[in-house]
Amino acid sequence: MDDHVSQAVGRPDLVRLDERLICLRFETMKVLSADAAVAHLLSTGAVRRGDTLLDSSSGIYAYALALACHRHGLRCHIVGSTTVDAAVRTQLAVLGAHLEQMPPSADLKLDQNRRVARIRALLAQDPRLHWMRQYHDEVHHLGYRSVARTVAAELGNQALTLVGGVGSGASTGALAGYLRRDAPGTRLVGVQPFGSVTFGSEHVSDPEIIIAGIGSSIPFGNVVHSRYDVVHWTGFAAALSGSVDLLRRHAVFAGLSTGAAYLAARWERRRDPGRTVVVIAADTGHRYVDTVFARHDEALPIESLAPHEVTGTDGPALPWSRTEWAGAPAPPAARVSPEDTVAPVTR
């Protein structure tokens, strides 16, 4: 029996979608990451019960950190994106977390820069705050060790390809790193939105929306670019089609980034049918009911979609592009400056 709901919320399920296509389905994936990070900080004395943990979030990590703080007896302060929705805001309030939400903005870079500036201002005012640095601190990798063990135990010695949103790098990158300890041939396929600097698509604008949570307009120190074999850039229209098909065909109700990853996973399985492909479903589809699933009649047949094959970061184009990244280093705009990785003041 679990001692806290965060354990149940963070535990993933493996669901077979098709022959050699597996869904690693989470209710809220970052709960694992946040809980393991907080437990580690407490065990090492970096924080103590009653301290306040601080970070920036577009929604999912905010909820995850609030649950971890609730479980371990800490306070939680979130500088939230303009995209944090009413359901998350309400849960944060009831859980006792303090949310500062940025004003409305259609510019993801402006939204993220505002959040970073606010974090630094808060740390200057009160150095006792502990900045979790979900985008930079490797402590957020720890939670995926148990997931790797689960995947390996369930799928045995099959040749694996892992597909999922890149995000802060602490999910796909960490999971692939743990899997490769026993299965070095595991391939990693990262999914990105257009407009993200992480893999060099910042010059391509998606007229609909940048898919929050899997890309960034600022560099993330947790992304280990050399771990990625392939990168897919997916626009809103293609991701919507993937999300709707995943629900219609397999009854898996998951977020927009999962729709993008599902498209990429099907494509990778087609290219290399001898491998088992595991696609990460990072969260449920509830926050996309109005923006994605209510528009299900706009979904294109996914068999009609195919990515543009490009070299490196040259020429990615809507609605979907793919490149053999082959462990290349970070592009210039994704390289993190030393000041971005400075650790917060701790005891």
Results as ranks from 00 to 15, higher is better:
T150I: 14
Q134S: 02
A117D: 15
P127Q: 11
A170W: 02
A97H: 04
R149S: 12
L99W: 11
E100T: 13
L122A: 05
G143A: 06
G96V: 12
M132K: 03
G177C: 06
N113L: 15
P103L: 05
V147R: 01
Y135H: 15
P127A: 07
P103F: 05
W131D: 11
V139I: 15
A124W: 09
Y144S: 03
G164P: 02
Y144K: 03
V151W: 00
S146W: 01
H130Q: 04
V166T: 11
H130N: 05
L123V: 03
E100V: 10
M102N: 11
A121K: 14
L99V: 09
L99P: 05
H98C: 10
I119W: 04
V147W: 00
A176R: 01
P103R: 09
A152Q: 13
A159F: 00
G177M: 05
G156Y: 10
R115P: 01
L108K: 12
R133L: 15
I119M: 11
D126N: 15
Y144C: 01
N113T: 13
G173C: 06
G156K: 07
A176E: 03
A170D: 04
A159I: 04
G169E: 01
L175P: 00
S171D: 02
V147N: 00
S146E: 12
A97R: 00
P104F: 14
L108H: 14
D137S: 13
A106W: 09
A117S: 15
E154N: 07
G156C: 08
E100L: 08
R114C: 07
V151C: 05
D111S: 08
T150R: 12
T172Q: 02
A121H: 15
H136L: 11
E154L: 06
D107G: 09
H141I: 01
Q125C: 09
S171Q: 04
L129N: 00
N157T: 12
L108Y: 14
T172M: 14
A106T: 15
S105Q: 09
A106Q: 12
V147M: 03
R120S: 13
